[in-house]
Each structure stands twice: as structure tokens, then as C-alpha cells.
């Protein structure tokens, strides 16, 4: 007989699998102390190779998150030369983070010089050109925080760039660039959506948030 995924109450879950999933999440996000504490409590296997570069990754991530893009770039290049060389999109995003930082600090002259020397060369490609126009327009406003492009100055935007950088570093280290947690959630969501379609339900589409509340 076919297994009905909705009868998950009958499915046995291995504790080790759960531990690995949680561990994967903590490692991905550089929660080093939490990792050590978790391992001590659960008696899980020590993943020595994971911890080596976590400190470096953590520092890079935080520099990017707080907008210190130049420092993040410097440390990333120390880790490995070709991470950014092979990823122009990420390179542009990091450089633009620095530009935004200069604009917010009201350093127009520096921002201008930086734009001409570092961002200008990207302008030959259409996909960067449009982004560049968005960033340059910030200069036209005395208070960029109140301009139509205010989203470029937000924590959310920096978070997005920092995440991209983190994934790139993980990929370079031959580690998973997505956590097991993410993959499981994506998989579960897609499966539930397919089941809803096949059953021809007229109800609302599957919502993880609603599911977890029920």
C-alpha cells in the first residue's frame, strides 16, 4: 500500500537525525557556543572539521551585517582569494554596502570617488547598471533615509547580503550552503501543496505558520 504522508503520527523519528538537524542549523549560523553546549548535553558526535573556520565565518558575517563591507571583503579574501573573484554579484553587493555606508555617514566626496573607481566598472553590464542607478540616486537626497530608495539602507538588505556571503563561504569550504532545516521545510511545504492540488481542495494553500500553531 502507498504511504499517506498525512499519517505522520506513525512515523518513527531517530533521535540522532533530530540532533543532526539542529546541529546543522547552529553551525550554519555560527552559534559556536551553542554548538559546544548542545554537543555536551546530547553526547552527539564531535564534528571537528566544522569548527575550524566557524570563527572566521562568524566575524565576516557580522562585519557584513553591520555594514562594514570593506572589512568583510578583506577577511573573505584572506580566507580564500577566489571566493569573490568567482562571484561578481556578491562582490558588487558588498561594494554597494560600503557605498551606502558612506552615503549614510554623509561623506559625499568619498562616496563619489568610491562609486567612480569601484562601482563604475560594473556599469558595463545591464544587470549591474540598474542596481547602480538605484544606489547613485541616493546622492540626490539630503536625507537618503526618506528617499524612495530607503530600502537600500535597511538592516533587512544588509542581512540579505550577509546571508549571500555566508553561503558563498560555506560552498567554498565544501559545506552545505543551506541548512538541513531549510531543506526539510521547503520539502514539507512543497509536498503539502501538491497534496492539496491533487485532492482538489478549495481551502487555503498550505501555510507553515498556521500548521505549527495547530
Amino acid at each position: 500500500m502507498d504511504l499517506d504522508p498525512r499519517q505522520y503520527e506513525n512515523l518513527a523519528v531517530n533521535d540522532n537525525d533530530i540532533h543532526n538537524i539542529v546541529l546543522s542549523y547552529l553551525i550554519h549560523n555560527c552559534y559556536k557556543e551553542s554548538v559546544e553546549s548542545f554537543i555536551a548535553c546530547t553526547g552527539a558526535k564531535q564534528p571537528t572539521d566544522y569548527l575550524e573556520d566557524m570563527d572566521k565565518r562568524k566575524r565576516i558575517f557580522h562585519f557584513a551585517l553591520e555594514g562594514n563591507a570593506l572589512k568583510a571583503i578583506e577577511l573573505t579574501e584572506q580566507l580564500a582569494k577566489d571566493i569573490l573573484e568567482n562571484n561578481k554579484d556578491l562582490q558588487f553587493d558588498l561594494l554597494s554596502l560600503h557605498f551606502v555606508e558612506l552615503v549614510c555617514s554623509r561623506k559625499c566626496t568619498e562616496a563619489l570617488e568610491f562609486a567612480q573607481t569601484k562601482l563604475g566598472p560594473f556599469g558595463k553590464e545591464p544587470k549591474y547598471m540598474e542596481k547602480l542607478e538605484d544606489f547613485m540616486a541616493l546622492l540626490a537626497y539630503k536625507e537618503p533615509e526618506k528617499s524612495p530608495m530607503f530600502h537600500l539602507l535597511s538592516l533587512e538588505y544588509r542581512q540579505q547580503v550577509a546571508d549571500s556571503l555566508n553561503r558563498a563561504i560555506l560552498a567554498h569550504l565544501n559545506l552545505p550552503s543551506y541548512t538541513a532545516m531549510e531543506r526539510l521545510i521547503q520539502q514539507a511545504t512543497v509536498v503539502r501543496q501538491c497534496l492539496s492540488q491533487e485532492a482538489g481542495k478549495d481551502g487555503p494553500p498550505f501555510s507553515l505558520k498556521d500548521f505549527l500553531k495547530s
Binding site: 562609486a115 562601482l119 563604475g120 542607478e133 547613485m136 540616486a137 546622492l139 540626490a140 528617499s147
Partner: peptide, 27 residues
């Protein structure tokens, strides 16, 4: 100049404004 005379037009002509401001990066 842009802050004084161009920014007020941003609400209605943003694309054109952005394209022109970007010349600062290209010379």
C-alpha cells in the same frame, strides 16, 4: 544641485532621475 532641483521630481520621474544621477559614477 541635484538635492535642490532634481530630488523634488523623483516622485514622478524616478527612472530618468536615476539614469542621469548615475553619470556621476561614469564621468
Amino acid at each position: 544641485y541635484a538635492r535642490k532641483y532634481l530630488a523634488p521630481w523623483g516622485a514622478t520621474h524616478m527612472k530618468e532621475l536615476q539614469r542621469v544621477i548615475a553619470t556621476l559614477a561614469f564621468k
